[in-house]
């Protein structure tokens, strides 16, 4: 597949019109800070919810950076950070066989059961 995207968009200036210089990449060798995932509890009583990610040298810095970038407008009362490499995810390619078995078990839902209208409080 080789679709040439030629249309010019805002924030999408095509390569053929690039200017400037192209010196050696000086930064590739740099010892980079690991990536962290940020979870925010927006108020007491609610779950922590994934908000985004950031780079930080350690957990303390990750929490401070998360405070600065993700809670500038009182978005949270509690923060979790976890290094992204520790997150294990299901594989989207397996989604069909992984989740499909749930689809044919309609009897797991209360609406499956046909009861007379006279039954109250159920």
């Amino acid at each position: 597949m080789n679709i040439q995207v030629k249309k010019f968009y805002y924030g999408d200036i095509p390569e053929e019109n690039t200017g400037g210089t192209n010196p050696e990449n000086n930064y590739a060798q740099e010892n980079s800070w690991p990536l962290w995932e940020v979870f925010i509890r927006s108020k007491q009583g609610l779950d922590h919810k994934h908000a985004g990610s950031l780079h930080a040298a350690d957990a303390a810095m990750a929490i401070e950076n998360a405070r600065d970038v993700y809670t500038r407008r009182q978005e949270g009362v509690s923060l979790w950070v976890v290094e992204s490499k520790y997150i294990h995810a299901s594989n989207p390619d397996d989604a069909e066989m992984f989740y499909e078995p749930a689809a044919d078990k309609v009897y797991r839902h209360p609406t499956f059961y046909d009861l007379p209208d006279e039954v109250k409080h159920m």
């Binding site: 990449n25 590739a28 980079s32 970038v69």
Partner: peptide
Amino acid sequence: GHGLYLYSAAETLGTSREQMVADLNSGKAK
């Protein structure tokens, strides 16, 4: 902060923050 949200989104496509910063600073990226 907006720059950070967007760099994070771009990183999910398989590039590194260092690479993007390097491309900006060298004048390669627009």
